[in-house]
Write a protein that binds this DNA or RNA. Structure first.
Lengths: 190, 190
DNA sequence: AACAGTATCTAGCATTGATAAAATATTCGG
DNA sequence: CCGAATATTTTATCAATGCTAGATACTGTT
């Protein structure tokens, strides 16, 4: 069995290589520059090899997006233990979310903006997505009625801010103020 | 001078025809189906004619987007005089925003999602955009410190909701609840 | 060493947005 | 009412894209 094992391992390595190359190229030049040709050239294989791993470009972007969700979930988790102490967990988590969107704009795009093959809010939802959403729910604290609904609103607000600033539809100036307003509103329990 | 006048009028008519055809086709089959060829065929001219009116596809979509902003601004304005009386202006306006996004998903896409040549929050910002934003500011009522910032937060939240539901990243179920949460938070003045 | 099955590549398709140059209308002077 | 100058529209084409079919090389097994 060691032979097919090796083969599968090599396949898995190539899968990794594709995903990481796509990620790097996208971060360097944007998703438009991630063409199947360039990506194939980057991994020193021919174009159709990509299709033996993924059903198409969309699925490759989906794989990158999942990595993004993993990183996002981790960043949110870490942020809870952030500087401002337990009192302002929510603010830290929100800041971490916006910071993620700002620092990884291209991956954020794959996660939340571009057409995706990922399933949200269903049984097929990848764990990484669930984990990230769970962090938002947790950040809102335990004593809330309909925690999922509240988390959805929070997520919507954060996403809106992130994306409207990124696309220069609202000015980057004022980001701190907006964050204050949002956190204050959500913290005012009752 | 009546001759060049007539020509300009005809040009303007063709401009209109292009924009409305693009809008119709997009609403019927999505933006991917709005290719320069199909659009040209729709107006019974050849492809390059489009480029004598617009610098490219992006600008055509921008023109459609402006129409969208006009409609949005009007809908928001009308909604203020809506059923629930003066007490719940904010709720009516929010509902109208989400309703617009739901009923004109493709135009909403051109306005807020797809790459655009439109300038936001600057001197070149078209009137229609300003008008729509002004409605949001007004909906929040007069007694607010930093009304623009608050409106930006509101807009972000609404946009996030609209877009995450549309792309099936949060379930459509619960829309009413989310709207309630949002409006309540914004209405709880200090 | 020959074979069967897998893996990979070369070549190409159909579309896309965009443009250059040819062809056609249109205008205006005499 | 003709013909030159101008403006307009079309034909033909480009380079790039995602994707795929068919040919080729390679693998391990017997």
């Amino acid at each position: 069995m060691s032979i097919t094992e090796r083969r599968e391992r090599q396949r898995a390595e190539r899968y990794e290589l594709i995903v990481s190359s796509a990620c790097e190229l996208a971060e360097a030049e944007g998703w438009d520059s991630v063409t199947t040709r360039r990506l194939a050239g980057l991994i020193d294989y021919s174009q159709p090899v990509l299709y033996s791993h993924f059903s198409g470009k969309t699925e490759i972007m989906g794989a990158v997006a999942i990595r993004g969700f993993e990183e996002l979930a981790e960043r949110l988790k870490i942020s809870k233990a952030g500087p401002a102490g337990e009192a302002n967990i929510l603010r830290n988590v929100c800041a971490a979310y916006l910071d993620f969107a700002r620092s990884r704009p291209v991956i954020y795009e794959a996660m939340f903006l571009l057409p995706t093959s990922l399933k949200f809010a269903s049984e097929e939802t990848p764990d990484a997505l669930r984990a990230a959403f769970a962090e938002l729910v947790a950040a809102l604290g335990p004593k809330r009625e309909m925690p999922a609904i509240a988390a959805e609103v929070l997520w919507s607000s954060l996403h809106g801010m992130a994306v409207l600033v990124q696309s220069e539809r609202i000015p980057a100036t004022g980001g701190e103020f907006r964050l204050n307003v949002l956190v204050q509103m959500f913290n005012r329990k009752e």
